[in-house]
Computed example of a mutant assay.
Amino acid sequence: MLENNDREKIQEYVEKILKSIYSSVKKNIESGMSNQDVIESAVNLTVNKLTPESKMVLSSVYNMLMENTLKKPLYQNAQNKAAFYSRDILKDLNTKFSFEVPAHIDYEESKSLINKWTVAGAICVGGGVVSITMKNAIPIVIAVIIAGVMLYLLRDKPSAGNKQDISTLIKEYLKNVKATLMSWVDEISAYYDEEVKELEKGMI
């Protein structure tokens, strides 16, 4: 399980990135950019920044979990430590996700993939937050998840009338992106714990 202080570090890191994104989007709003263009720029900027950053977050979460695992007395045994490394949980985690940054966001493709993943039970959506189920065998494209958050928000808020409205929509989008990423972090931690528990069943 990810320790509270480690989870807080990850959350602070994500919040810092999202704050910088909002700062850039706010300039676009103030420049008089159309609402549709503001939405497009916000999603593209978020996807372009958070897709590679998500890979770093996954790696950081894994390293935090691994460090805590290897402190346990059970892993002071060289054979058990070797068994842990052989299990290569990080490889499994990376296989479950695609961190490739797309050249552009195709909303129709995103809708199609998200609907497919929802039907297959790979993700569930509630209140604009996309939660990933780690037990699924379908590789999830992180960029599609990030874009998908806005798709779900726009279902409820198809248009924003003025600068204040569009600013509120972008803030809500980024808030839900943060919640989605932190939900994902918790799923990584839970998956890791299950894998380690299974591994330890065969250890002395």
Rank of each mutant, 00 (worst) to 15 (best):
K116S: 13
V144Q: 04
L113Y: 07
S131L: 09
V149T: 11
C124S: 14
I145E: 10
I142D: 01
A122R: 01
I140C: 01
L151S: 11
N115M: 08
G121P: 03
A120V: 03
V129P: 00
Y107A: 07
K116E: 13
I140N: 01
K116Q: 13
V144A: 02
M150K: 08
G127E: 11
W117G: 00
N115T: 11
A143H: 11
I114F: 03
A147T: 14
G128K: 06
I132V: 15
T118F: 06
I146S: 05
Y152K: 12
G121I: 08
G127H: 05
I140D: 01
A122E: 14
Y152I: 08
C124M: 10
S131W: 02
A147M: 07
T133G: 02
C124Y: 14
G127W: 05
A120I: 04
K135C: 04
G127L: 07
I145F: 12
S112F: 02
S131C: 04
A137E: 15
K135P: 00
V129M: 05
V149C: 05
V130A: 03
V144Y: 00
L151V: 09
G128W: 06
K111G: 00
Y107S: 11
K111I: 12
L153N: 14
R155G: 10
V149L: 08
I132E: 04
M134P: 00
W117I: 03
V125G: 05
G126F: 07
S110E: 10
V130C: 04
T118L: 14
L154P: 00
A147I: 07
V141A: 11
